[in-house]
Computed example of a mutant assay.
Amino acid sequence: MTEPVRVEATPAALALIEEIKADHGPILFHQSGGCCDGSSPMCYPQGDFIVGDRDVLLGTISDVPVYISESQFEAWRHTQLILDVVPGRGGMFSLDNGRERRFLTRSRLMPKT
């Protein structure tokens, strides 16, 4: 049985990821738990964010790892996350900030495998 794909991205998100990678090099995403920036996916340079022992790797998108906290993973374990892009400002510390486009997480129930 194959492992289900837990995270995907829209074409707009893939394009913004490539733009940010061109400017900053290797990056990663961490799905925010809701503090200051709501539930936005936060984008960081790989060397600037320390992945915790209790963070869960959901998968990779365009060679970019996507993490979520263990507690949030438990709440969303039956959900597939889809990174998308909408107009607006990104999270205060996220690399999409200042580009007038920001990442947004959409979701749907996990497809049956």
Rank of each mutant, 00 (worst) to 15 (best):
T2F: 10
E3R: 13
P4W: 10
V5G: 04
R6P: 05
R6Y: 14
V7R: 06
A9E: 02
T10E: 10
T10C: 07
P11F: 09
A12D: 13
A12Y: 06
A15C: 10
A15T: 15
I17E: 00
I20R: 05
A22G: 11
D23G: 08
H24L: 05
I27T: 06
I27P: 01
L28R: 09
F29G: 02
F29S: 06
H30D: 08
H30T: 09
H30N: 14
Q31C: 05
S32V: 02
S32W: 00
S32Y: 01
C35R: 12
C36G: 15
D37W: 05
G38V: 12
S39C: 09
S39N: 10
S40Q: 14
P41D: 08
C43Y: 01
C43D: 02
Y44P: 14
Y44V: 04
Y44E: 10
Q46V: 13
G47N: 12
G47L: 01
D48K: 13
F49D: 03
I50S: 14
D53L: 08
D53Y: 01
R54Y: 13
D55K: 04
D55Y: 01
D55S: 11
L58M: 06
G59Q: 07
T60A: 12
T60Y: 07
T60F: 06
I61Y: 09
I61L: 14
S62N: 11
S62F: 00
D63C: 07
D63H: 14
D63V: 05
P65L: 09
V66M: 10
Y67M: 08
Y67P: 03
I68P: 06
S69F: 03
S69C: 04
S69M: 07
S71A: 10
F73M: 12
E74R: 10
W76D: 13
H78M: 04
H78C: 01
H78F: 12
T79I: 09
Q80K: 15
L81K: 09
L81R: 10
I82Q: 13
I82S: 04
L83F: 15
L83R: 08
L83C: 09
V85F: 02
V86I: 10
V86M: 08
P87I: 02
G88W: 01
G88S: 03
R89E: 15
G90D: 00
G90T: 03
G90R: 03
G91C: 09
G91Q: 07
G91E: 04
L95Y: 02
L95H: 07
D96G: 00
D96R: 07
N97C: 09
N97A: 13
G98T: 02
G98H: 03
G98S: 08
G98K: 04
E100V: 07
R102E: 00
R102S: 03
F103M: 05
L104K: 11
T105P: 00
R106H: 01
S107C: 08
S107H: 07
S107K: 02
R108D: 03
L109W: 04
L109I: 03
P111M: 03
K112G: 02
T113F: 05
T113N: 05
